[in-house]
Amino acid sequence: MQIFDIFLLEAVLNGILFGGVLALLALGLNLIFGVIDVVWICYAELMMLGMYCVFFLHKVHGLPLVAAFGAAVVLVAFLGVLLHVLVIRPVLNSEPINQLLVTGGVLTFLQAAATLAFGIDFRNLGVSMPSLAVGEISLPWSRISAALTALVAMTALYVFLKKTYLGTAIRAISQDRAIMPLMGVSPSRIYLLTSAIGGALAGLGACLLVLQYDVHPAIGLTFGPLTFMVCVLGGLGNMLGGFIAAFIFAQLIAVGGFYFHLEWGYVMAFGFFIIMMFARPQGILGAK
């Protein structure tokens, strides 16, 4: 009984750490939805490319890990801008569902292109970090540092949104798009900036995940659906709601996976999502 509880506690703690990373991913997607009113279905695929970037620069070309991380963040930020200019901008005024489907096309494209370019092998970064042992509980440092970094990044973004002119404009644009030019704000420039920030967050997510998971072309499918559901559960565009939803989701997966099997953790999380959509379709924090 004693041992059992300790392992459960370990699962809960791991859930919290996973929640941090999930919250970071959800934040990027929420930011883009809130500002541009478009869901990047291919968000996790951008992240997958970031993971490959870290892998190749560090493992294959021997760049220091930090430099590889920096490059991945910059690369994915750039990909975000590219996605906006090439794909989103042409459909900005068409039906919402086309905007959703078009990024679905990008998802298929990126995943398949990665398979073509890198093959279906699982690749491990090969950076091993020790674990933090407290009594009988052991938590890998890769997870702890990932969760901490995610927290720092989220705090930094919060300060940016709260304290700067650009940040205020980003929050304002989701409340009233049409009058932004009256303030001297060019919405298309804000969209570009937001796409870059959203991309950078996906890039950062890539750095944190590549320490814990092998890279392969379909890894986006593991994290993508999870990320949308966290966002929708929190209320699309509601960053605080997304943050809370991320931790709920991560706990369901961790504890559900602990009691049954990892897939059942996912089944529970997705099932919970569907039920919550009916109970609170406007998101856990949304007003009726």
């Binding site: 794909v87 086309n98 096309g105 990008v106 298929t108 494209f109 995943q111 398949a112 073509l116 072309p217």
Partner: peptide, 23 residues
């Protein structure tokens, strides 16, 4: 042999192009 990914690559690309140019 590598067709499995190549056709999906083209699918994805064409899906994007179809929605933009031929919805």
């Amino acid at each position: 042999n590598k067709v499995n990914a190549l056709d999906s690559t083209i699918y994805g690309l064409m899906l994007v192009l179809f929605i933009i140019y031929m919805p």
